[in-house]
């Protein structure tokens, strides 16, 4: 474990906790994309299958369970909670997210480290996570006023994989870890998708004004 990976995991954990707090306290999921949340459930289920087959550490196991539980909980709130589901921007969250699943799976069948079920699903989860934020970013452009909690949630979510990029650089040089091209390229694509959000988020933070993405 290195400081970059720990910071990345904490940023990721904080983002999901922030989102859950926003939904629970405001009883609203306005501005949040259900499509992105559902893609994240698929990402975590496909990636954390080794939860039952390999024990790395208490930390690793607990964090996997937390990410699976929180992502399922958020989808439950947005789909079934009687008050929260009324606040879902159904008409704005129109990205057909099931469209991205088959290409990611097909790519995982073609490009992977090893052709086994676990490895292909793990690779699929990396490709899917790289594009999972798209519905949320598109919804943001359609949302007039983005509340602070949502902005912070997306910033932390983007920051986590950016920190993982630093973690991979650290591991490659310091631990002489072998090249992880699939993780590296997926992580780069994922972080690049946040580029313009980061720009407008930091700009709004510097000028102390409301976060606004150009349509």
């Amino acid at each position: 474990m290195n400081i970059f990976r720990l910071a990345g995991d904490m940023s990721h954990l904080l983002s999901v906790i922030l989102l859950l707090l926003k939904i629970r306290t405001t009883k609203s999921c306005a501005g949040i994309s259900l499509k992105t949340q559902e893609l994240y459930v698929v990402v975590f289920l496909a990636r954390y299958l080794n939860l039952f087959t390999r024990y790395y550490s208490f930390y690793n196991t607990v964090m996997k369970l937390v990410f699976i539980a929180t992502s399922v909980c958020i989808v439950w709130y947005m789909r079934f909670h009687k008050v929260v589901k009324q606040t879902y921007n159904k008409d704005l969250d129109t990205f057909r997210h099931y469209v991205v699943i088959p290409p990611c799976f097909l790519l995982a069948l073609l490009v992977h480290h090893e052709f086994t079920v676990m490895e292909v699903l793990w690779t699929f989860s990396l490709y899917l996570e790289a594009v999972a934020i798209l519905p949320q970013l598109i919804l943001l452009q359609r949302t007039r006023n983005i509340d602070n909690l949502t902005g912070n949630y997306i910033f932390l979510l983007g920051a986590y994989r950016a920190l993982y990029l630093l973690n991979w650089i650290y591991r490659f040089f310091m631990e002489k870890a072998q090249a992880r091209w699939i993780s590296w390229i997926s992580g780069l694509v994922q972080t690049a998708l946040y580029a313009d959000f980061f720009y407008y988020y930091i700009k709004s933070w510097k000028n102390n004004e409301k976060l606004k993405l150009p349509a």
């Binding site: 990976r5 790395y56 550490s57 480290h113 090893e114 993982y164 870890a177 992880r180 993780s183």
Partner: peptide, 10 residues
């Protein structure tokens, strides 16, 4: 096997 990257990350 050693060639597979460690899955110790989240």
């Amino acid at each position: 096997n050693p060639k597979l990257p460690q899955k110790d990350e989240l």
